[in-house]
């Protein structure tokens, strides 16, 4: 393994770790949304829109302003991005240029409300060759909450961390397009001798159900002993891949690493007589109902994990 390979592996591992941290909350803003800062911002921007001061609202583009650290030191909790940036610097990727800033405003915040930013590291892609030099694209999401956990604004932010070329580029050119490399899916199952066969199966497009080699009893989730005769002699059978929805939920909040809300998770009853949990996909959420027929499908989450999921099937 070359030194470069090692750096790459370490960066990838750290990225997976940071992604797995999920959403990390910062400390609440030092000041609530307030008129003086809004007035100052409007004056500096040259923004004459009267709606903000008339109605006690903050300009939506100020979302990030409220939770900026300013000149205060130590006022901010460590975010999952910090370690990633430190590691990139250490790997020689010392240059930085922001490439994307995407903000969504759920509503305008009001004077008096206090915002808290929560950061989720979502992706590290690279190394990529760009006009600025070789680098990694790091992406994170920030959600701003007011009290009672109501999200009011969200931001996706992406930077290119690059190794500066020998001669600094005359002008930073457009960074190369969106990277396509697959990053590790953060929600990995733990496996051991009792369960590995199941996950080996999903990689091959098989839904494997543990079956007792002595009495034939089926079991899911699997385990070391047969629930009927306590035999440790196990094999597995391949499920037909059909089922019916026994119960389900629609997840909205809070954000889940590696997932985009809303999404559906269901308990599926198989004709073989066992139940299994999985996502219901390719179906409008309002059409999901208990008792609906389902058919298994397989989704590759990253280079190593395939999850069985469920799509509407034939009755």
């Amino acid at each position: 393994m070359t030194r470069e390979d090692r750096i790459h592996e370490e960066l990838r591992e750290l990225a997976a770790k940071q992604v797995a941290l999920g959403e990390v909350r910062g400390v609440p803003a030092a000041d609530p949304v307030n008129v003086p800062m809004i007035r100052h911002w409007l004056a500096a921007m040259g923004d004459a829109n009267p709606v903000y001061l008339d109605q006690g609202l903050a300009p939506p583009a100020m979302a990030q302003v409220w939770t900026m650290q300013g000149l205060r030191t130590g006022a901010r909790g460590r975010s999952p991005v910090d370690d990633m940036m430190t590691a990139l610097d250490a790997g020689g990727y010392t240059g930085v240029v922001a490439t994307n800033c995407e903000q969504t405003y759920h509503r305008y915040v009001r004077v008096g409300e206090r915002l808290t930013a929560a950061t989720r590291f979502t992706d590290l892609a690279g190394p990529k060759r760009t006009a600025l030099g070789v680098g990694y694209f790091a992406t994170w999401n920030i959600t701003w909450y007011v009290e009672d956990d109501e999200p009011v604004a969200e931001m996706l932010f992406r930077v290119l961390k690059f190794r500066p070329a020998e001669r600094p580029a005359e002008r930073p050119a457009e960074p190369s397009p969106e990277p396509s490399r697959r990053e590790p899916y953060p929600l990995r199952p733990a496996t051991n001798q009792d369960t590995a066969f199941f996950w080996e199966g999903t990689k091959r497009g098989e839904l494997r159900i543990q079956s007792c080699a002595d009495c034939g009893e089926l079991r899911h989730p699997p385990g070391p002993l047969c629930p009927r005769c306590r035999s440790a002699d196990r094999t597995h059978t391949l499920a037909t891949g059909t089922g019916t929805l026994y119960s389900y939920v629609v997840h909205h909040h809070p954000p889940v690493p590696g997932r985009e809300a809303p999404f559906v998770v269901g308990v599926v009853e198989l004709p073989e007589g066992v139940r299994i949990v999985g996502n219901v996909v390719d179906c409008p959420i309002e059409e999901v109902t208990i008792g609906m027929p389902l058919r298994v499908t397989y989704r590759s989450m990253d280079d190593r994990l395939v999850l069985p999921m469920w799509t509407p099937g034939e009755a």
Binding site: W41, M45, N49, P59, P60, A61, V65, N100, C101, Y105
Partner: peptide, 29 residues
């Protein structure tokens, strides 16, 4: 960048007027 976002917002609301409600700004820098 925070100013870039602010100026983009201002450009659109200068045109649209005070009752316009901004839902999001996506910028490629």
């Amino acid at each position: 960048i925070l100013t870039t976002m602010g100026l983009v917002e201002r450009y659109v609301t200068d045109w649209a007027g005070p009752a316009a409600v901004i839902g999001g700004i996506n910028v490629r820098l």
